Computed example of a mutant assay.
Amino acid sequence: MKIIVLEGYTTNPGDLNWDGLNELGNLEVYHRTSLTDEKEIIDRIGNAEIVLTNKTPITGSIMDACPYLKYIGVLATGYNVVDLKAAKEKGIVVTNVPDYSTPSVAQMTFALLLEICQHVGHHSQAVHEGKWEKSPDWSFFDFPLIELVGKTIGIIGFGSIGQETAKIANAFGMNVIAYNRSQSEEGKKLAVYVSLDELLKQSDVISLHIPLVEETKSLIDEEAIAKMKNGVVVLNTARGELLDEQAVADALNSGKIYAAGVDVVSTESIESSNPLLKAQNCFITPHIAWATKESRTRLIDIATNNIKQYINGDPVNVVNSD
């Protein structure tokens, strides 16, 4: 059975291996594949029965041109890059990889928050530049330092990542409130559920952990920001388009939002015109919350098991079965 990985580099830049997939078939791994050139995508899939993708779209027309294709595995949790309707009509199984990055994304959320609170990178650089050595005082700091104990964090989206973030927040002595479309008993042990408006009004820190759908696009816009406390911190490790980036940049520059920490932006890789690049006190990382070695190992392991289960006639993590 021929297995094609269309874009393997971000998942495995060389520090991991594809041994498990090699055992399941004739494996061919491409570092990168065009997101827009359908001919290249079709040529690379060729007569393969199984293809793995992350951001490379698999459209109905690509499926038409690849008649041997029987299985599409998405190397991510989100699967909007695949035309699910077309796949179902053609009997092609589509799977995703859920929950592989939960600990890493929650950890990154607090990495951003702690950098905002302590400015570790800035102060380390200041020391190396000699500013502490030249200081007349034994302690040197030139940014406000913030303690998290007693602060209220509002978590929008209280699934596995939101709840993992809540566990860390509780360990820091924060008050945790959450907004989610549904409530669970497990969630009630970690946070107090509130309405979205109440969360926006009460939170000192707001952290986003919801999927991007039509209803959540630009959720944090000018109207939402107006409901927030002055000096709020906004964190986004979910999807870039959850933020109206211009509205957030304006709020950062006015001081309404004290700081923002974002690991995702609306267009990736980031464009020079993105207003967040010129906003004050905005910390931007290049979509790395998911990318710890442990997380990527889980990703490959789960994707491999998905294919193994499919070959055995008992597919799991199927997203187009309904």
Results as ranks from 00 to 15, higher is better:
Ile307Arg: 09
Cys282Ile: 08
Leu145Trp: 04
Gly313Trp: 02
Ala166Gln: 02
Ile220Pro: 09
Pro103Val: 12
Ile41His: 14
Arg296Trp: 13
Cys282Gly: 08
Leu148Gln: 06
Val248Phe: 01
Ala260Asn: 05
Ser184Gln: 00
Asp15Lys: 15
Ser182Arg: 02
Ile62Asp: 05
Ala260Glu: 05
Lys39Ala: 15
Leu299Ala: 02
Asp83Cys: 04
Val234Ser: 13
Asn96Met: 10
Leu243Ser: 11
Lys88Val: 01
His31Asn: 14
Gly240Lys: 03
Phe158Gln: 13
Ala249Asn: 05
Trp18Pro: 03
Lys39Arg: 15
Ile284Met: 03
Leu242Ala: 04
Phe110Cys: 08
Tyr79Asp: 06
Gln309Arg: 13
Ser195Asn: 07
Thr56Ser: 01
Ser203His: 09
Val29Asp: 01
Asp43His: 12
Glu89Pro: 00
Leu52Val: 00
Ile50Cys: 14
Lys201His: 05
Glu164Gln: 15
Ser272Arg: 14
Val105Asp: 11
Thr10Lys: 13
Glu89His: 13
Thr297Gln: 12
Lys85Ala: 05
Tyr179Trp: 12
Lys227Phe: 04
Arg239Cys: 03
Glu185His: 14
Lys134Ile: 03
Arg298Gly: 04
Gly313Asp: 11
Arg296Gln: 12
Glu129Pro: 01
Asn80Arg: 01
Thr216Tyr: 04
Asp244Glu: 11
Gln163Asn: 02
Asp322Ser: 12
Gly255Val: 15
Asn306Val: 15
Leu199Ala: 14
Ile302Gln: 08
Met1Ala: 12
Tyr258Cys: 14
Ile220Arg: 02
Ala247Tyr: 09
Ile45Phe: 02
